[in-house]
Design a protein around this nucleic acid. Structure first.
Lengths: 131, 131
DNA sequence: ATTGATGCAAATGATTTGCAGCCCA
DNA sequence: TGGGCTGCAAATCATTTGCATCAAT
């Protein structure tokens, strides 16, 4: 994977924030530094970076995919009103050693486990909601 | 919520299967019994039924939303190749009594927890993959 | 009778893709 | 220098919505 300037900036911006932005939000952030970058480039790079394990693609966070520059194992909580995602200290941040044990209960080869909390973020809880 | 004929059939078909179908798959299933039903009706009803807690909307299962007619608490595994979802016996199927404990670690009001496994389904593991 | 529900078609919105030119390794 | 990468615009694909009509309560 070539390290192009746009790829560098995308990665840098994603790592700078703690906000788990959507591809489009990140596009807007990056555009401040690279006005001519296209949405397609951001989408393509996020997909590639997540395949390379350099960023994490979050699933189940509403209609828009979100990305996390922090590749350390940690748990998220997702606001059901506005969609925002935050990190949360959860008791389940443990090892994955028990994964193979449950393999044959469904016939699938188990690869991983995602735990995600759902809730209401402080902003939405105060009626400041947007989405 | 009125119990229309289409609503009844949709619910019946979803409950009949164990496949966690997408809205579109369910639309095709229902159409066998109601050729004139529209996709919009299926989408609208699934959304409404899930709001009413009569079916479960699955998140994080790829690009298409999937639904589960089984409202009992249980855990899913999601094939990263074809997107199919299956039920899995997991050690985490426990009570949610510990949820409030972690509330203030992130400022969110914690409402629930979703645990989802990722893996490769038997079909895809044998090279019979489609998606 | 009222009012929510339906079917149709068109709109939306996120994401993807074709393509010609560009630039990193 | 060559093949991956970019920007642009158009294409996809899932899902939603406006609207006139229909049907459940």
């Amino acid at each position: 994977m070539r390290m192009t300037y746009q790829r560098e900036i995308i990665l840098e911006e994603l790592r700078r924030v703690k906000s788990h932005p959507t591809a489009d939000e990140l596009y807007l952030m990056v555009r401040h530094r690279m006005p001519r970058i296209s949405r397609a480039t951001v989408y393509r790079n996020l997909e590639q970076l997540s395949e390379a394990g350099m960023v994490v693609k979050l699933m189940g966070t509403g209609n828009q995919r979100r990305y996390d520059g922090n590749t350390q194992k940690h748990t998220h909580i997702h606001c059901i009103k506005c969609g925002k995602v935050a990190d949360i200290a959860a008791p389940e941040d443990m090892d994955a050693s028990s994964l193979p044990d449950i393999q044959n209960s469904c016939g699938y080869k188990v690869l991983g486990r995602q735990i995600e909390y759902t809730g209401i973020c402080p902003d939405c809880n105060n009626g400041k909601s947007t989405a």
